[in-house]
């Protein structure tokens, strides 16, 4: 490189920069940070590999029938509790914005009560309902002994589903409120009835806002079902515990359970992305990525 080029002397040379070589900015901080994190990760992996973990137990029990049965029960409970949660959520959200003061206040009270008390505590209350109501039913019509009805499955389903409904109602409500008032008016002017407007115009648009948080809640519910182990429901964590009470391989079986939770959550995340893309049709940001 000649000296004439490094320090331009004439005005023409000063503006003549097209032939110069471009040196990219260096990201030293970025490189250092990545190095530190990788080092820590390596240390963690080493710790697990030299730790007192009998990996053979993990692989032996990964597909054990008891574990797989627990996995199925976890999935069934997730679906059942979320179904109750979503139905309650939609009903309570509509009650809340219905303009009927009694319905609206009941919706607010429901939210306050079931969002306020811990989920574990609610499960235990449902499971122990027989202590205060020995029988359930309508006098003269039918009656059951509470202990017969309130099995671990039913108690967990009600406990998880009803507290979930409180959270989901807020998601549904924010979804309904996100739809522009002009959409309601346009639907009315083409002669739609209230129900048709909700179904064809409002809900499809509200779904776009509701799917990501509801997806989160489904994933949260997969993990929340582990609370049902406390009331003896045979979901995956409970079954892993049953095994390690017998063979004392506590951590190995907890890793088996972790593995299955991660598998289920990964699959659900992919499904969630698909659904988001479907309800995002017609909106600019999503289309750019398709």
């Amino acid at each position: 490189m000649s000296t004439a080029e490094t320090s331009p002397t004439t005005l023409e040379q000063k503006y003549e920069i097209a032939h110069l070589k471009l040196v990219p900015k260096r990201h030293i901080g970025r490189t250092v940070a990545a190095g530190i994190v990788l080092l820590l990760l390596a240390a963690l992996i080493r710790a697990f590999s030299v730790g007192q973990i009998e990996w053979s137990y993990v692989s032996d029990f990964l597909f054990a029938p008891v574990i797989l049965q627990g996995l199925v029960n976890t999935l069934v409970m997730t679906v059942a509790a979320m179904a109750i949660g979503i139905v309650l959520g939609v009903v309570v959200a509509i009650m809340r914005i219905s303009g009927n003061p009694v319905l609206s206040w009941i919706a607010i009270g429901y939210l306050w009560l079931f969002r306020g008390a811990p989920a574990l505590l609610q499960l235990m209350i449902w499971f122990n309902l027989a202590l205060i109501f020995p029988t359930l039913g309508i006098p003269g019509l039918f009656e059951f002994r509470t202990v017969d009805v309130m099995t671990p499955f039913v108690a967990a389903m009600l406990g998880l589903g009803i507290q979930q409904g409180a959270y989901t109602s807020e998601v549904v409500r924010s979804g309904l409120l996100s739809v522009d008032a002009g959409q309601y008016e346009a639907a009315r002017t083409i002669g739609m009835t209230q129900m048709k407007m909700l179904r064809r115009i409002v809900l499809p648009q509200a779904m776009r806002v509701m799917v990501p948080p509801v997806g989160n809640e489904v994933i949260g519910m997969v993990k929340l079902t582990s609370l049902a182990s406390v009331i003896q429901f045979s979901e995956i964590l409970h079954n892993a515990q049953v095994i390690y009470y017998a063979n004392t391989r506590v951590l190995e079986l907890l890793l088996v359970a972790s593995f299955w939770y991660l598998v289920v959550v990964s699959v659900l995340s992919v499904i969630q992305q698909r659904i988001e893309r479907y309800y995002g049709r017609g909106s600019k940001s999503i289309r750019a990525s398709m």
Binding site: E185, A186, A187, T189, G191, T193, P204, G282, S283
Partner: peptide
């Protein structure tokens, strides 16, 4: 609600902000 919807069918409306259904 139903009878009002029936009356509205015969009256079109065009809004300042279009209000097309975005989905």
């Amino acid at each position: 609600d139903k009878e009002i919807s029936r009356q509205r069918r015969r009256i079109g409306m065009v809004f300042q902000r279009f209000n097309l259904f975005p989905h």
